[in-house]
Amino acid sequence: MGDPGPTSAAALRILVTEAEFDLAAEAERLETGPETGAVVTFLGRVRDVVSEDGGGLRHMEIEHYPGMTERALEAIAREAADRWPLAGVTVIHRYGHLAPGDRIMMVATSSRHREAAFEAAAFLMDYLKSRAPFWKKEVTADGEAWVAAVEKDEDALGRWR
């Protein structure tokens, strides 16, 4: 009996898109088979910011690295599928021009039991924050500024090592 290689049979779905996505349809896509007892979804939205003059966020520009971004998301999803017994992993991330309240991204995981689905979803979010090739620029009444990476996002990876 040789090593069959990667043991995970999880279905990975990775999408990097400018378009809006359908959260309900994506969750439903993971409702496969009677043995899948849990589907966890996380939705990320563009949060308004309060600027000095109280003007708030006009919009956000999200840049990515076509090719590398998809590969990085797939590697993170595959890592989750190797760590937890998942049936499916979906990662969708948008780029381009987004307004406050717009959906930026989602992850969804499915498994027999909720623990694996919840933990894998949290793992995916922590890794996406600092390992997915996206860069955000915020445009407010004060001008525009690139969002800096924050230490706590890097620190959050510590709990998965």
């Binding site: 990320g44 990085a72 924050k129 600092s130 390992r131 997915a132 860069w135």
Partner: peptide, 29 residues
């Protein structure tokens, strides 16, 4: 930095490389 779309340290050799990318720390999610 990334060499051929893999994140790498700055002391990474360029032999055989085709594409090098430079960017700030990533801010996904």
């Amino acid at each position: 930095a990334a060499v051929d779309q893999e994140l790498v340290p700055l002391d990474t050799p360029l032999a055989g490389a085709r594409e090098v990318a430079f960017f700030p720390p990533m801010t996904g999610g």
